[in-house]
Design a protein around this nucleic acid. Structure first.
Lengths: 355, 355
DNA sequence: CCTTGTTTTGCAAACGTTTGCAGAGAAAAG
DNA sequence: CTTTTCTCTGCAAACGTTTGCAAAACAAGG
């Protein structure tokens, strides 16, 4: 049981000083090329791998970042996690992942526990109180995604403009009564999207009815679909794609045709073209946000906190098959099964680039 | 810029030895209760948090495990990641997450890079060669999920029996010609499922046609749907739910009715009831597998590798709305749009428990 | 009071790196 | 051939813990 070889062992074997071996890896330009080669060969042969903990202890750099999300099972997060991990890996950083289960207490605990052992933290869709967030931002290096607390370093996926386009598009198609289906109430994105809908509607004489699919799940949305259909709206904008999808599931079961009877627009573009008909939605560049966050954490490794910033990525409207002209008032919506099977409509535009 | 307080600073402040402070946290029973209290109070006040790297260096325990998956964006993995992270957190462990992007080279590199800095590794659906896997298992503490290499520690989500049930069920409904739609060719689960289908079919006089939705995406499956529909099979078993879903998307677009024209059964139960009609599938207990893996890694922290084991979790068939009696031979399948809209069928059984 | 035993604390080495400083050679300049 | 200037390598301290061993303090038994 000799365990893994260490720098000291390598050095002894080669008859040189440990510091030389160390430099062969970290500052090869200080060394004679042949020395570097020799060390590398020996390291390879012995299967040497550097001990990150020792390095971290010595340099004060952790070589890792923490990523905290409310619920990894929500399809919004995996692409974000993936982008963060890939980019971090390119930068030679590892990533700790933690899931708060939507619980603020758990989130707070996780932040405290992770912060000291990492270069910095990315906290996505935080459910913490603003005061607490500012406090944390003061003493820890943390980049927030989709949470807008002044003076913190935050990256926001802004859908306001895209929602305006969406509403304008619906308005052009003749829709006047629309519904907004809210998601998690503590979510910044939810508040932002709701008020984007409200503001545009007020300015353009649209009537908006509010619903809330509280836990934000497919099932919750599906359960809501009947009341939405019965409310007399002709179009709905949902907080996100899974809610939109749940609604569509409910509509399909009740024989309400999308988009003939009801137009629906989702948000986040997490489902791409996997719904039927393909869901019109607002695409949002999570990958770019994630990369920006890890970049921010990897810069200025000395500082004890990130300087405030407010970075915005705009979402873009993607029209696919779930929006159409308003149903003429003469043929009111019934909740009976329909007889015709809608052919897929495909008004499709490209998605936002993610590079 | 004093930085975070250390054990030594705390000790100096209190006029006691660093070792005493250390013990106040790690072995409080060795100390006079009032000493412990005093240290805790001071630590609290000073905002002391232990340095994990120093601890790891000193004890040789990393306090973290690594989790390596081929593609976090595939819905099979998030629940697994979530379960692993939750359970690890309960055990006081953090988790490093890495995504190999389905690339064996990347996977190998990630394993080598992570292994030395963690207590152990969980590698899910490895795409590495068996020889390499055995090699790795010899020198690293690693638990494999869904990869069956002898003498390694592996946890398998076995769907063989459930696939037999599925085929028996289809057979009872009168189906004789079925298709198996394969997923990632290097996947152990894919091989296992394919041969389960083959074996049962041979024994029960079913005729099976093979297809492969190679990258395993929704789109690949959708693109395949026409040939599947045209092949004359009356039922399909897909490698996983996303392939099943893609097929259904293609069928819907072509006017092929599920389950009237074609029955479909998925696998892994990643989509739950979010398809229309709700997908019949094979539920698999990923959470249990994940927890078993972290438990294995947290035991025997001294050893340099895990002792071989082969742990099986059986999947269970969940019948929902996508299977039905075979279409009578007198009314052959056409590829024209149908006129009737299928009402949701709901032969539903419970899912496997996940606790 | 002196042993003896037990509980509580301190000393110092160790974990595997990195890095400032200085020494040893070698090359360049005089 | 000496001095100066580089280039390359080694020494040793430091990073913040843990832990075996031993010393000190205290309690109990005689």
């Amino acid at each position: 049981m000799t365990g893994r070889p260490t720098i000291t062992q390598l050095a002894a074997e080669l008859g040189i000083a440990p510091s030389t071996v160390s430099r062969a890896f970290t500052r090869p330009n200080l060394l004679k090329p042949e020395t570097v080669a020799m060390v590398q060969k020996a390291a390879e042969a012995a299967g040497y791998v550097p001990n990150h903990h020792a390095r971290a202890l010595s340099t004060g750099r952790a070589g890792a970042i923490g990523l905290i999300v409310p619920d990894i099972a929500n399809p919004f997060f995996p692409p974000l996690v993936r982008a963060a991990q890939n980019y971090a890996s390119d930068l030679g950083l590892s990533v700790f992942l933690a899931d708060t289960d939507e619980d603020p207490t758990r989130e707070d605990r996780l932040i405290s526990r992770m912060a000291p052992q990492v270069e910095g933290l990315i906290v996505v869709s935080s459910r913490l109180a603003s005061s607490r967030i500012r406090q944390i931002a003061d003493s820890q290096r943390v980049a927030f995604i989709n949470r807008d607390v002044p003076e913190t370093y935050r990256i926001l996926l802004d859908t306001t403009a895209a929602i305006r386009s969406a509403l304008a598009h619906l308005s052009e198609l003749g829709h006047r009564r629309i519904a907004y289906i809210g998601g998690p109430p503590q979510s910044w994105a939810n508040k932002q999207r709701r008020s984007a809908v409200d503001n545009f509607s007020k300015a353009h004489a649209l009537e908006v009815t509010h619903f809330s699919a509280d836990p934000g799940t497919y099932e919750a949305a599906k359960a809501l679909s009947d009341s939405v259909a019965a409310s007399g709206v002709t179009a709905v904008i949902a907080f996100d794609d899974v809610i939109a999808h749940g609604l569509m599931g409910g509509f399909a079961a009740a024989g309400v045709d999308v988009p003939k009877d009801l137009s629906v627009i989702g948000c986040d573009d997490t489902l791409a073209t996997t719904t039927f008909p393909a869901l019109s939605t607002i695409a949002v560049n999570v990958g770019a946000a994630a990369r920006r966050a890890v970049a921010a954490l990897s810069e200025n490794p000395g500082s004890t906190s990130l300087t405030g910033a407010r970075i915005i990525f705009e979402g873009t409207l993607v029209l696919r098959g779930t929006t159409g002209p308003v149903r003429p008032a003469s043929s009111p919506l019934t909740l009976e099964p329909e007889l015709d099977h809608p052919a897929a409509r495909s008004v499709q535009t490209g998605r936002g680039s993610d590079s």
